[in-house]
Amino acid sequence: MFDHLPRASLATLPTPLEAADRPHNAGPALWIKRDDLTGLGGGGNKARKLEFLCGEAVAEDAKSLVTVGAAQSNHCRMTAAAGSRLGLEVHLILSGDAPVADDALTGNQLLSKMFGAQMHYTGAAESHWGELEIAREALTDELAAQGMRPSSIPIGGSTVTGALGYAVAFVELIEQCATAGFVPRAVVFTSSSGGTHAGLLAGRAAMIADGRLDRDSAPDIVAIGVAKGVNLGYPDIAGLADSVLEVMQVDAVIDGDDVEVDARWLGEDYGARTDAATAAIDWAARSGGWLMDPTYSGKGLSGLLGQVAEGRWNRDDHVVFIHTGGWPALFA
């Protein structure tokens, strides 16, 4: 399903699948899929997307990468690392204002600078994604005029090409679960720009189509929405997943009823702290030494723990949480 597609070798795969303590006595067995350990530039889920995005860029003879994100964007940090690995110039469009000096850089911005990226600050608010994307398109045009042959990547790398990374991840995960002796009842993860979600749905549909998963026992794909757009249904996750399946050359379509986004854990906005995320971050740190951040993975885990407390799953179920990374933001 993937061998015909250009792909750069960037991630350390497969990532581990670790057993966690039951968060509730009557609740399910919980497993953590450690996609914070993908290796590239501090790890995180974007490494999987960048393998296909950068593979495409190299195949098209790009000389530079351009992408966009919040001030402490994990995706931007990992794109910077991918560029350093592949010898491509990297330009990052970021929210917020430039720091007064380079020695004031913290977290993901400090790491992006270490990887050699050029950072362009827009002054935009973190949640103003449209404004950031306009700036990305303008810089892409400018670099193209200079002969830099830019490969321009939207926020989160959530294109059809990027989402392929999580179709691969789903197959990898199900094979690990089989080795451990179970089929998960649900796969839970954090979602903002929709690419991880679409990829997981495509991977699930592909495994059902080729008979490796039974439709009735296939795991639910449960997104915890941490951005207003995905919580309101943007982008069209089912449509994006269908496009991924087409690129994979798999004869299957996504049922709209399979697209589940729990929007209750966002808080006031993207990046805004919540008490539930803080509690989930503390639980992860004390239960397994897992580091999660308050913008992304911490909110995702808070949604899973909240659904456990509500009794969605029983003691006989196995639930997997995909830890998508984000720990460098803790140092900001």
Rank of each mutant, 00 (worst) to 15 (best):
H75D: 00
H75A: 05
C76Q: 07
C76S: 05
R77P: 04
R77S: 06
M78W: 01
M78F: 00
T79S: 13
T79K: 07
A81T: 04
A81K: 13
A82F: 11
S84F: 07
S84Q: 13
S84E: 11
R85T: 06
R85V: 13
L86N: 00
L86Q: 12
G87M: 07
L88F: 03
L88G: 06
V90A: 06
V90P: 01
V90E: 12
V90C: 14
H91S: 14
H91P: 09
L92K: 09
L92Y: 09
L92Q: 08
I93G: 06
L94W: 05
S95M: 03
S95K: 01
S95L: 09
G96T: 02
D97I: 02
P99H: 08
V100H: 10
V100P: 02
D102G: 14
D103T: 07
D103V: 07
D103E: 15
L105H: 07
T106C: 00
T106F: 08
N108D: 01
L110E: 01
S112C: 02
K113C: 10
K113G: 01
F115C: 03
G116W: 08
G116C: 05
G116R: 02
Q118K: 13
M119K: 09
M119Y: 08
Y121L: 15
Y121P: 06
Y121I: 08
T122W: 11
T122Q: 01
G123F: 02
A124N: 12
S127K: 12
W129L: 05
G130M: 04
E131I: 12
L132R: 14
L132S: 08
L132C: 03
I134T: 14
A135M: 04
A135E: 13
A135W: 00
E137N: 05
A138L: 10
L139A: 11
T140E: 10
T140C: 11
T140W: 04
D141H: 04
D141M: 10
E142K: 13
E142S: 09
E142I: 00
L143R: 11
L143K: 02
A144S: 11
Q146K: 10
R149S: 15
R149I: 14
R149Y: 12
R149H: 14
P150E: 11
S151M: 00
S151L: 06
S152P: 02
S152G: 02
I153P: 00
I153K: 03
P154W: 08
I155A: 14
S158D: 04
T159W: 07
T159N: 03
V160I: 12
V160S: 03
G162C: 06
G162A: 11
A163W: 03
A163M: 02
A163L: 02
A163Q: 03
G165H: 01
G165K: 05
Y166V: 05
A167C: 04
A167D: 00
V168C: 15
A169F: 06
A169G: 14
A169H: 00
F170Q: 08
V171P: 02
E172D: 09
E172T: 03
E172K: 10
L173K: 04
I174K: 04
Q176Y: 04
A178L: 08
T179E: 15
A180P: 00
G181N: 07
G181Q: 14
V183P: 00
P184R: 05
P184Y: 11
P184L: 00
P184D: 12
A186T: 12
V188A: 13
F189R: 09
F189S: 05
T190V: 15
S192L: 11
S192H: 02
S193V: 07
G194I: 06
G194H: 08
G195C: 11
G195T: 01
G195L: 04
